[in-house]
Amino acid sequence: MELITLMVGTVLVNNVVLVKFLGLCPLMGVSNKFSTATGMGVATTFVLTLSCMSGWLIEHYILEPLNLQYLRIICFILVVAAVVQFTEMMIKKSSPLLHRTLGIFLPLITTNCAVLGVALINISEGFSFIESMTYGIGASIGFSLVLIMFAGLRERLALSEVPKTFAGTPVALVTAGILSMIFMGFGGLV
């Protein structure tokens, strides 16, 4: 029950993108098309969950016993980079089409601050292994949800008449802001 609460809380109330403002780069970069956004969401979910789990293991079995907590950030970056590389190999093997459409944004998951951010939040919140895994899955579901929702909105925005001053990224940012305000409505849920 506690885990479900944590999950719902991470997906809706403490959404990584719209409440914590992490991972805005892929939100703007890959949200032009619905199908690409879905692929990106799945890839990020995989990377985020895996890096959360390995981050927790490294923190509690290597860094803490050796009293090397100040190496946390550099170790996590190393792990995230390796996991992204692994994901890229897997996608290249299983779905060449997705690999082609994601293009440069696939290796750029490494620099997605949501991935590193969630792994670090996990440690600072003092979660257990299962909790940190749930938190990772919840955060990535929240990220994918917003990314896919935003892609749907932007597909419609592309067809509508936007004043010239606002066309393109400005109107997308305004939309993201409104979406963020909507997510504040979930505030008292958990």
């Binding site: 490294i58 050796l66 090397l68 170790c75 190393l78 792990v79 390796a82 692994f86």
Partner: peptide, 18 residues
């Protein structure tokens, strides 16, 4: 030396996995 050893071994391990 501990820092260097930890980072090196972590890098090597990830390298082998990849």
């Amino acid at each position: 030396f501990l820092t260097i050893a930890v980072l090196t071994s972590l890098g090597l391990m990830l390298g082998f996995i990849l």
